[in-house]
């Protein structure tokens, strides 16, 4: 009797959301996987049958170049974000606690701003008639406006600008947990600031660095808006290719195959980071 009652409670609380996620999250993904294994119908859409053809087509040179660019731009953006975020996080973490709040808020606020707006802002700055080119030609540094917009560089700048908070917060959280006494003890034992950083600070911040890098890489690798607005044809990434295949070319199977590939990379990146974090954790407790 008790068990039956518990069953009803579970159904009433967990049931609706679980059902919803099944229908509107798991089933759609399953459909994508099925489409990725289906042949393309001549008029667009999906034909009957099973084929590995689409997965094979992913190895086409043009697609590989786009996937390669996605990985490259995401990696560069991740490293640049790390290079900016780490010193800032360190500077904040070393402040007195009550003085940390304002800089943290200042860092968090941009993450609430719509991605479109953040990227659009860079268009106003980087385009031919934008602020930078106007300033450069006005000052006579260059005679012709520079092609700044619709470049890989513009995409990287946009990605770094968009995802900086996702790098900064986990690193700050890790650095904030380091006992100041630990650093003082190391100094007391004769370590130079450089050695204190290498031997004490950096190892203890690694979990935060890994989390931040995972967030930024995953977000950047799967991005659509930033390369679409700032990269144009020359900055196309895998997200743009998927959108193009689905909404313009109407080649559903290829778009689906690309989606599966993207998911695999994302899951692998996250899984790898979790594995590393687990191992680091165990290494510390062992």
């Amino acid at each position: 009797m008790r068990v039956e009652r518990r069953g009803r409670l579970v159904a009433a609380t967990v049931g609706p959301a679980a059902l919803f996620l099944l229908v509107f999250f798991l089933v759609p993904f399953a459909v994508v996987v099925v489409y990725a294994l289906s042949p393309a119908a001549p008029g667009g859409g999906v034909g009957p049958g099973f084929t590995l053809e689409q997965l094979g087509r992913l190895w086409n040179v043009d697609y590989l170049r786009i996937v390669g660019r996605s990985a490259r731009l995401a990696a560069v953006a991740t490293l640049l974000t790390l290079a900016i975020a780490y010193p800032v996080a360190w500077a904040i973490a070393r402040l007195e606690r009550r003085r940390q709040l304002l800089p943290l808020l200042v860092i968090v606020v941009p993450s609430w701003i719509n991605l479109l707006i953040k990227n659009y802002a860079w268009i106003t700055i980087l385009r031919r008639e934008g602020l930078v080119n106007t300033a450069l030609t006005g000052l006579g540094v260059t005679s012709e406006p520079l092609p700044l917009l619709f470049t890989e560089g513009a995409v990287v700048v946009g990605l770094v600008h968009s995802y900086l908070p996702f790098m900064l917060l986990p690193i700050y959280a890790a650095l904030d947990r380091i006992e100041p006494a630990l650093i003082e003890a190391a100094r007391d034992l004769g370590a130079t600031p450089g050695r204190v950083f290498r031997r004490i600070v950096w190892p203890q911040s690694l979990a935060g660095v890994a989390a931040g890098c995972t967030f930024v890489f995953v977000l950047a690798f799967g991005s659509f808006v930033t390369p679409d607005l700032l990269g144009g044809a020359r900055g196309m990434m895998i997200g743009n290719l998927i959108q193009n295949q689905i909404l313009q070319v109407r080649n559903w199977p290829l778009g689906a195959a690309l989606s599966v590939a993207l998911t695999v990379v994302v899951v692998a990146a996250i899984g790898g980071a979790l594995l590393l974090a687990n191992r680091a954790q165990r290494g510390r407790t062992a």
Partner: peptide, 20 residues
């Protein structure tokens, strides 16, 4: 399962929902 929609790229969710 709760973490999946958080980490899944938007474009993949978009494609899946449209397909559905």
């Amino acid at each position: 399962l709760l973490y999946l929609p958080v980490v899944m790229p938007d474009i993949v969710m978009a494609v899946g929902l449209l397909a559905l």
